[in-house]
Amino acid sequence: MENMHILFWLLKDIGWCMIWKPLGLSMIIPTLSIAVLITWRTRDIKAELAHNLAIVFWITANSYWMISEFFGFDTVHVWGSITGKHMALLPFLSGLAILLYYYLVQKPQELRAAQVATL
């Protein structure tokens, strides 16, 4: 499943790079669906959950950015100097926030709990 996920992701990005809208757009749903499924299946492992959630947000941001370029609203000003493309920062930053929480809060707690358990 993970290998198929990479294939779909590459096809989506090739479609974006080559401005092949049908290929790029048609690969969003399978790429995102498999990422969500992988995330669901690994939800019991906190490290995997954090990283896979970050990937879901990354694919979401990446797909939105591609759509904004395909449909020409990437340079449209939404608010002040923020353009349609900049709106992709919301899911990018969400994924980053999840990883920061994991590495700054969750993982240190896990390491402390493991040290206490070995005493």
Score class of each variant (00 low, 15 high):
residue 63 S to V: 10
residue 103 Y to S: 05
residue 105 V to D: 12
residue 17 C to G: 13
residue 111 L to S: 05
residue 64 Y to F: 15
residue 117 A to M: 08
residue 91 P to I: 05
residue 31 T to E: 04
residue 62 N to P: 05
residue 82 I to F: 13
residue 26 S to V: 02
residue 61 A to L: 09
residue 101 Y to C: 12
residue 63 S to R: 05
residue 1 M to S: 09
residue 23 L to R: 01
residue 59 I to G: 00
residue 41 R to F: 12
residue 71 F to M: 12
residue 25 L to M: 15
residue 61 A to S: 15
residue 8 F to V: 06
residue 88 A to W: 00
residue 112 R to P: 00
residue 57 F to H: 01
residue 40 W to T: 11
residue 52 N to F: 02
residue 50 A to Y: 02
residue 55 I to T: 10
residue 97 A to Q: 06
residue 85 K to H: 12
residue 116 V to I: 13
residue 29 I to H: 11
residue 96 L to G: 00
residue 26 S to M: 11
residue 43 R to C: 08
residue 114 A to Q: 12
residue 41 R to S: 12
residue 13 D to S: 05
residue 67 I to E: 01
residue 86 H to P: 01
residue 59 I to T: 06
residue 73 F to Q: 11
residue 93 L to Y: 10
residue 84 G to H: 02
residue 13 D to F: 02
residue 25 L to A: 14
residue 61 A to C: 14
residue 10 L to N: 05
residue 101 Y to M: 07
residue 111 L to M: 07
residue 38 I to S: 04
residue 58 W to E: 03
residue 106 Q to H: 06
residue 4 M to T: 12
residue 72 G to M: 06
residue 21 K to G: 04
residue 117 A to G: 00
residue 84 G to M: 08
residue 3 N to E: 13
residue 6 I to A: 12
residue 26 S to G: 14
residue 23 L to Y: 04
residue 39 T to C: 09
residue 16 W to G: 00
residue 84 G to K: 03
residue 116 V to L: 12
residue 113 A to F: 05
residue 53 L to S: 02
residue 100 L to E: 10
residue 20 W to T: 00
residue 25 L to W: 12
residue 26 S to D: 07
residue 90 L to S: 10
residue 82 I to M: 14
residue 6 I to N: 02
residue 49 L to M: 12
residue 91 P to E: 08
residue 105 V to P: 01
residue 21 K to D: 13
residue 100 L to M: 14
residue 103 Y to C: 06
residue 26 S to C: 14
residue 45 I to H: 13
residue 75 T to F: 05
residue 45 I to R: 09
residue 65 W to H: 05
residue 114 A to I: 04
residue 35 A to Q: 04
residue 5 H to P: 01
residue 21 K to S: 11
residue 36 V to R: 02
residue 88 A to C: 09
residue 86 H to Y: 07
residue 46 K to S: 14
residue 67 I to H: 03
residue 12 K to R: 15
residue 30 P to L: 14
residue 105 V to L: 10
residue 80 G to H: 05
residue 55 I to V: 14
residue 114 A to C: 03
residue 19 I to A: 08
residue 19 I to L: 07
residue 44 D to T: 06
residue 100 L to T: 13
residue 74 D to A: 15
residue 115 Q to P: 01
residue 27 M to Q: 05
residue 52 N to G: 04
residue 51 H to E: 09
residue 49 L to A: 13
